[in-house]
Amino acid sequence: MLTIELFFEQSLNGLQQGVMLFLMAAGLTLVFGIMHLINLAHGSLYMIGAYVAASVTQASDSFTLGILAALVAAGLTGMLLEFSALRRLYNRDHLDQVLATFGMILFFNELVKILWGPQALFLSTPEFLSGTLEFIPGAPYPSYRLFIIGAGLVVALLLRHLIIHTRVGMLIRAGATHREMVGALGVNIDELYTIVFGLGAMLAGLAGALAGPMLAVEVGMGEKILILTFVVIIIGGIGSVRGALVGALLVGMVDTYGRAFLPTIMRELLDPASADTVAASMSSVAIYVLMAVVLIWKPRGLFQAYGS
């Protein structure tokens, strides 16, 4: 039965899922929009974030330290990747980038398996976030999910500030449109790109670390969120951070509402057995349908990036 409380709770769930996706999508869309690089290994950075956070939290008993370590590890790995291989691919065909970064996924998955073993790792919610808050009557909500919503919104505001009000942000915007001009003005473009890539990697690492307490920290966790992230930035329009935010929230909401309400709706229309199957199938493909519809309507996504 659908009550106002349940609807509100599901909306919060959608928001939380959207915020999580945004953390991933922001980094991916920046790299994509500014360096024109398709980075499939973005999911690997997410996985590294989660693994490092889990290990460090377990060793030090401090989730905060775990998050910091994840940021550092993912950021450094990202910059190392950029410096050693990816920067050679900026001017190459997108397909070369796909092949190379796919190779990196295979490498990181196996490396993590060798370093940490094939079993999933343990990472629990920190004590002060492990309870629930009952601000919707009758529906206690996990504090940790509220924490993620908060953290994600803070990151979104910081990013906005960074891009609009700081010198780095100005260079990012300028670099996206007039690469040569920025270079001619004496800015070290290579350095700027490494920094942007590192920033994107840190965001992915943060997403991984934050997801860790809720999810299985396991090999292959990156690919599961990677495709969703691509869906998000495509819907939002490549290169647009605002688009990534809107796209992420849209995907989060559609996915959550689909899973939450389709079974009930279908049971009104069909017999129970086929209703369950149909509802499950429909909610599985809901976000892909959303993306297809958006693209058929707006072939370049909802928002235009700075560059294009």
């Binding site: 092949l99 190379a100 295979l106 196996e110």
Partner: peptide, 15 residues
Amino acid sequence: HWMIFLGPMLVLIVL
């Protein structure tokens, strides 16, 4: 652990 070799091989081929 064959993927740890296949992955970098793909990267090298691209480069």
